Deep mutational scan, measured.
Amino acid sequence: GATAVSEWTEYKTADGKTYYYNNRTEESTWEKPQELK
């Protein structure tokens, strides 16, 4: 299949934890999204 550009962006909180934000759905998660595995 075609490689889609991930909708997920990786961010870090002030205390250094990583989370992921989906630009399309406006969803955020602590877990690494399936698309990034």
Results as ranks from 00 to 15, higher is better:
Glu35Asn: 09
Gln34Asn: 14
Asp15Lys: 04
Thr29Asn: 03
Val5Glu: 12
Asn22Val: 01
Lys12Tyr: 08
Thr25Lys: 03
Tyr11Gln: 09
Thr3Ser: 14
Lys12His: 10
Glu27Ala: 05
Ala14Ser: 11
Trp8Arg: 01
Gly1Trp: 11
Glu35Phe: 07
Leu36His: 09
Pro33Ala: 02
Lys17Ala: 06
Asn22His: 03
Tyr19Asn: 02
Thr13His: 03
Lys12Phe: 08
Asn23Ile: 13
Asp15Arg: 03
Tyr21Met: 04
Glu35Arg: 03
Ala2Val: 13
Glu7Val: 07
Ala2Asn: 13
Trp8Lys: 00
Trp30Pro: 06
Ala2Met: 12
Glu35Ser: 10
Lys32Ile: 11
Tyr11Ala: 05
Glu7Ile: 08
Lys32Ser: 04
Lys37Cys: 15
Tyr21Trp: 08
Glu27Lys: 07
Tyr11Asn: 04
Glu31His: 07
Tyr19Ser: 01
Tyr19Val: 08
Tyr20His: 01
Trp30Thr: 10
Val5Asn: 11
Glu7Met: 06
Tyr21Gly: 02
Pro33Gly: 02
Ala14Leu: 10
Thr9Lys: 11
Arg24Ile: 15
Tyr19Ala: 04
Asn22Arg: 01
Glu10Asn: 02
Val5Met: 13
Tyr20Arg: 00
Ala4His: 14
Pro33Leu: 02
Asn22Glu: 01
Val5Trp: 12
Glu31Leu: 09
Gln34Lys: 09
Thr25Ala: 02
Tyr20Gln: 00
Pro33Asp: 02
Glu31Gly: 04
Thr29His: 05
Glu27Gln: 10
Lys32Leu: 09
Ala4Gly: 11
Gln34Ser: 13
Ser28Glu: 10
Tyr11Ile: 12
Glu27Asp: 04
Ser28Asn: 06
Glu27His: 04
Ser6Tyr: 09
Glu27Met: 08
Asn23Ser: 15
Asn23Pro: 08
Glu31Met: 07
Glu31Asp: 10
Gln34Arg: 08
Asp15His: 04
Lys17Pro: 01
Leu36Arg: 03
Ala2Asp: 12
Glu35Val: 07
Lys17Leu: 11
Lys12Ile: 13
Trp30Gln: 07
Glu35Leu: 04
Glu35Pro: 06
Glu31Pro: 02
Asn23Arg: 11
Ala4Ser: 13
Asp15Ala: 07
Glu31Asn: 07
Thr18Asp: 03
Asn23Trp: 15
Asp15Thr: 08
Ala14Asp: 08
Asp15Phe: 05
Gly16Trp: 01
Asp15Ile: 03
Thr13Val: 03
Glu10Gln: 08
Gly16His: 03
Tyr21Pro: 01
Trp8Phe: 02
Ser6Leu: 10
Arg24Gln: 09
Tyr21Glu: 03
Glu31Tyr: 08
Thr3His: 13
Glu27Thr: 06
Thr18Trp: 05
Thr9Val: 15
Lys17Thr: 09
Thr9Asn: 08
Thr25Gln: 01
Leu36Glu: 07
Leu36Asp: 08
Gly16Val: 00
Leu36Met: 10
Thr18Glu: 04
Thr13Met: 06
Glu7Cys: 07
Trp30Met: 08
Tyr19Arg: 05
Lys37Leu: 15
Tyr21Leu: 03
Tyr20Ile: 00
Thr18Met: 05
Thr9Asp: 05
Gln34Pro: 15
Glu35Asp: 11
Gly16Thr: 00
Glu31Ile: 12
Ala4Trp: 12
Glu10Ser: 05
Glu7Ala: 07
Asn22Ile: 01
Ser6Val: 09
Thr18Leu: 10
Glu31Lys: 06
Val5Tyr: 13
Thr18His: 06
Val5Pro: 12
Thr18Gln: 04
Glu7Tyr: 08
Glu27Tyr: 04
Lys32Met: 12
Pro33His: 02
Trp8Pro: 00
Lys12Leu: 10
Glu31Arg: 04
Glu27Phe: 04
Thr18Tyr: 09
Tyr20Ala: 00
